[in-house]
Design a protein around this nucleic acid. Structure first.
Lengths: 185, 185
DNA sequence: CATATATTCGGATCAGTGGTCCATTTATGT
DNA sequence: ACATAAATGGACCACTGATCCGAATATATG
């Protein structure tokens, strides 16, 4: 890649990241290009579609969450590990408003640029869940996909301005249904 | 209202309802107008915004759910009544794909055309919840708004094609956290 | 350093969206 | 039958994501 192209690409990623946290996932691509002092066509050649751009931005975060799961797999309490990881996942989504619907779409769409990252993330969660189940600390009738769906649903709650104030509390409610020891009442 | 206007309005509502169930809540207004053999401007005068159109379409369903809650308030088991109503609410949303984000937005936006219907719906659910709580059949640390949020989140799950297959199962999981007797494991 | 060439750039453009305006048509009451 | 108030829809606006292609530019070679 030519040096100027690389510079433009990096600059675009930085600007896009900022725009995304400010305006949410539906931010206008023209706005991003404008803020980067670049033509729309330039943005669209580096990232042919909105999804490609989001993929480049989110892959890092996804992989961090996956790595975090791996860390926690060897931590003391299987129950605590699962809970902490779930909370980390949900908390992360607050960074990029609207990202949950993309995740939900990508997990089943093998053509999606985000697909691989999503599947890896789900597998990491499934391992944490299995460990907790083996220890009798999590209910046995759910699997990694269920867990992924619950995370997405809770993250979606946090995305809705009107429901966000309850998101933390409802996390505890849902967690109490998954992890035996989390029942707070 | 003039007779031809009334006829057009009714026709538009019928066509819009069909289009909505087929294409979801993001259907193009121009498409609806085309399908109704009517100019876009005509559709937009009868229903000045997409939200107004949806309001006209959804208000009936909302009120039915509210009425259903009132029915169930006098039914035998407070626990069963709450569970049945929750399931009815979630099931209803499958009719109009994408309606949950509108509900979430309308519950806090007093300017929204759907606001009143949403608030009434939440109040109906709150009464069912309170009754179950008084009977010791539901956890005490949630209120009507929490319940509304949980319904919305579960409905959102059903809206996501990739997660929908798990929606029923996850309903049971979440319900088990709310209603004491629903724990199925 | 000069030149050739391959790559990158961005303005013009396209089809689509929700929304507004206003001249024309049409139904209604007298 | 006519006057008038109301309903209509095509033309238009700003915006969206996306594509094309002539112009500008960085790099490699002589």
């Amino acid at each position: 890649m030519r040096a100027d192209a690389r510079k433009n690409r990096d600059h675009l990623l930085a600007v896009a990241g900022a725009a995304l946290t400010e305006e949410g996932v539906d931010v206008s691509l023209r706005d991003i290009a404008r803020r980067a002092d670049v033509g729309l066509a330039t943005l669209l050649r580096h990232f042919p579609t909105r999804e490609a751009l989001l993929d480049a931005l989110l892959r890092t975060s996804f992989d961090e969450l996956t790595a975090r799961a791996a860390e926690l797999e060897t931590s003391g309490s299987p129950e605590e590990a699962l809970l902490v990881w779930l909370r980390d996942c949900v908390a992360w989504t607050t960074e990029y408003r609207g990202v949950t619907v993309l995740m939900a779409a990508a997990i089943e769409d093998t053509d999606s640029a985000l697909h691989a990252s999503c599947v890896t993330l789900r597998a990491a969660g499934a391992r944490l869940l299995a460990r907790a189940q083996a220890a009798g600390a999590a209910r046995g009738d759910i699997d990694g996909t269920d867990l992924f769906a619950l995370i997405a649903a809770l993250a979606w709650l946090g995305d809705q301005p009107s429901l966000a104030p309850r998101a933390d509390h409802l996390f505890d409610v849902v967690a109490s249904a998954v992890v035996s020891g989390a029942r707070t009442e």
